[in-house]
Amino acid sequence: MSAVAYDPRRRLLLGAGGGLLLAAVLLRPASAADAVEIGMSGTPTGSEVWFRPRGLLIRPGQAVRWVNRDTGNVHTATAYHPANGKPLRMPTGAKPWNSDYLLPGQSYTVVFDTPGVYDYFCLPHEHAGMVGRIVVGDASDARPYADTDAQLPAAAVAGFPEVAVILKAGRVD
Score class of each variant (00 low, 15 high):
R143W: 10
E48W: 12
G85P: 04
F121W: 08
G132F: 04
T45D: 15
F121A: 09
G42D: 03
A142L: 13
V136F: 02
L26P: 11
V111P: 01
T109G: 02
V25W: 15
D7K: 08
S41W: 12
A139L: 03
Y120G: 13
G15D: 15
V136K: 03
G85C: 09
V36H: 14
G85I: 09
D141Q: 07
R143Q: 12
N68T: 00
R28T: 12
I134Y: 02
T92V: 15
V131R: 04
A63R: 00
Q106D: 10
R65M: 10
T78M: 07
S41P: 00
L56A: 02
V4R: 11
V110S: 03
K95L: 11
A32S: 15
G132V: 02
D113K: 14
C122W: 04
V110Q: 08
A77I: 12
A94F: 04
V64H: 04
V4E: 13
T71F: 08
T71Q: 15
R59F: 03
A5F: 13
V117Y: 00
G42Q: 01
S47Y: 06
D141F: 10
A94V: 05
P53D: 01
Y80W: 13
S107Y: 05
Y6G: 06
W50L: 00
T78R: 10
T45N: 11
N73L: 15
P104V: 01
T92Y: 02
R69Y: 00
A16E: 14
M130C: 09
A30R: 03
Q106R: 15
G61I: 01
E37P: 02
F121E: 09
R133C: 02
D70A: 12
E126C: 04
T109H: 09
H75G: 06
Y80I: 00
V4G: 03
T45W: 07
L12N: 13
Y108G: 08
H75V: 09
T109K: 10
V74Y: 07
A142M: 09
V25M: 14
G55K: 06
G137A: 01
P144R: 07
P44M: 07
A142T: 13
S107M: 07
G18R: 10
V25K: 05
T71C: 01
